[in-house]
Design a protein around this nucleic acid. Sequence first.
DNA 1: CGTGTAAGGAATTCTGACACG
DNA 2: CGTGTAAGGAATTCTGACACG
Lengths: 101, 101
Amino acid sequence: MEEYKSKKVLTISVVSELTYLSERQIRYYEERKLIFPERTKGGTRRYSFDDIEKLIEIAQKVEKGIQTFDIRQEEKKKERENEWHRKMLQGQLNAQFGYKR
Amino acid sequence: MEEYKSKKVLTISVVSELTYLSERQIRYYEERKLIFPERTKGGTRRYSFDDIEKLIEIAQKVEKGIQTFDIRQEEKKKERENEWHRKMLQGQLNAQFGYKR
DNA sequence: CGTGTAAGGAATTCTGACACG
DNA sequence: CGTGTAAGGAATTCTGACACG
């Protein structure tokens, strides 16, 4: 449904306007592996609305004094937890209904 | 809520990809007063997701052989009808509850 | 009428680097 | 570490025009 938000369609200038961050900051957060824009054939970045939300969160943390490295670690931890929950749920289902074959 | 769709944030190249229309066609439909992108200070166009939907409708009509002039007339007619309904509703409300003062 | 295209210029974006603190 | 900035080049976009049918 709301694929708008995850579609990579925004230029860095638009993202800069919407987040009030400088293009330098946006590119730096990418360098630190916090966001992952796509690229056109020509090499220009393309962001999504989800990226904008994420950038705003990042900016708030940076303002609090949290370092990008730690933000990255936290992010990775969340991913691992999600992975764990996903597997857990899958295990539950398999236990109850068995594997498809 | 869904302000995403009306926000003018897309470049013409992205719109071209999403609509499968050429940039030439997109600019031409603007020339014919069918769509109204915003402009940056520098003069580059900015479109919304709503514009994309509108462009797809336009393209379908053009394929059917309808001329842009007629599409424009139909569009204006709709606007007048909406205006009429709006005033009608307002009149109903005023008749029941009187004017604010 | 609707669309393609080559042309020349301007706006936008990119990278790597130096600076500061 | 996080961010600003000047530098040079490449990608993107713009307009007005000519072409075709």
